[in-house]
Design a protein around this nucleic acid. Structure first.
Lengths: 205, 205
DNA sequence: ATCATTATCATACATACGTTCGAATTCCTA
DNA sequence: TAGGAATTCGAACGTATGTATGATAATGAT
């Protein structure tokens, strides 16, 4: 070992980009090793198979995300403040790590087993957000609902709006690269979620 | 022509299932023609290429959906009633046509150009929902927001919860095949959206 | 300096892919 | 019922894939 750059790491970095672009099938070992500046046999040697490289890449994507969410949720502030910070932060995180949403959508589409690291990270995130909402219910700032289901509703919005970025741009001309448009989208989402969580003030439907 | 079953139709039906399962790359012409009970050359003969078969399949998926949404939106009832009916109906439609969300996620993940039929259907749906919300704003039942952005927030929830069905089941044990669980999920989503749309009654954050 | 370990390399293999081609067959029309 | 068009068929093409293999090079401990 002790190369200029670790070959295994270079393979993960190259594979991350290529898996995000074309999914498992779309990223050939030849393309990955070429991009990493490694030999064709390097994946087999360092990971045993393409499948195991894929799992390593998945872990390298979702684990930092889970750490990020965990960090956000335990910051000081009211439940409402942290929830809204979480929503905008997820928007930003997915914007700053564009490979992640692309990888996720590839993963959703594939029939292949969901890597353990992904399942674990999803569980951690869901648990963290659920507890955040339960806290809000305890202090009366969040409507009475199953908090685990509320968490899914909340998180659906930033994720979905990020995933369909290309679709919205091509079909509706709604361009998230435009800072003004993107700001309006995020703010609308935050207000929508705030209203969706808030307990009824007087009248009820 | 005049076969027992039209070969071109059989190819579309077979391709729909296989594209939904494995995406464009994952569905080989050999698998498609075999499933359709047709010859290997049938795709080239009837559609010219795999690419054009893909476009035909995409159209066969999104056009009925667009018609369904258009029909829903123009039914009688208040804006609020129709909006909530739309949400539950999208849940149901995606449940009854499981190939559609799988196809969509494959489409989102692929780098290939978005078929015209998909863009058109998306535009129609977005426009219909936007107008429905604008109507609600006119009669005071929907909060003042850019209705086009609100429409995206609303629709994100049923779509996303359907797309991650397998993920939720495997990682969280949340099984949408369980009627009771599914009912709770849909009702929570409808209440969340109802609250997210409703205008503030008195106090404001 | 020597040697076993670790890593890289070029090559080969079996398989699968989309598409093309010409012959064989089926179908409708005249 | 004959003829021409439409369709189906089997085989072949060039290319790309994941993995295996054995030789070569670099590395680190003795």
């Amino acid at each position: 070992m002790h190369e200029t750059v670790d070959t295994a790491t270079a393979l993960i970095d190259a594979a991350r980009a290529l898996f995000a672009e074309g999914g498992y099938r779309g990223a050939s070992i030849r393309a990955i090793t070429a991009r990493a500046g490694a030999n064709l046999g390097a994946v087999t040697y360092h990971f045993g198979s393409k499948e195991r490289l894929y799992e390593a890449v998945a872990a390298s994507m979702v684990e930092p995300l889970a750490a990020h969410v965990a960090n956000l949720v335990t910051r000081p502030g009211s439940s409402t403040e942290r929830t809204e910070a979480l929503v905008t932060s997820v928007f930003d995180y997915l914007q700053e790590h564009p490979d992640l949403p692309r990888f996720m959508v590839q993963l959703l589409g594939s029939a292949r087993p969901i890597p353990q690291a992904v399942q674990t990270a999803l569980r951690r995130n869901h648990r963290a957000i659920t507890e955040l909402l339960a806290e809000g219910q305890a202090d009366g700032s969040v409507r009475a609902e199953e908090p685990g289901l509320l968490a899914l509703n909340i998180i659906a919005i930033p994720i979905w709006l990020t995933l369909v970025r290309r679709l919205l741009q091509q079909a509706l001309g709604l361009d998230q690269d435009d800072r003004e448009i993107r700001r309006a989208m995020i703010e609308t989402a935050v207000r929508f979620i705030r209203a969706g969580l808030a307990p009824p003030s007087e009248g009820d439907a």
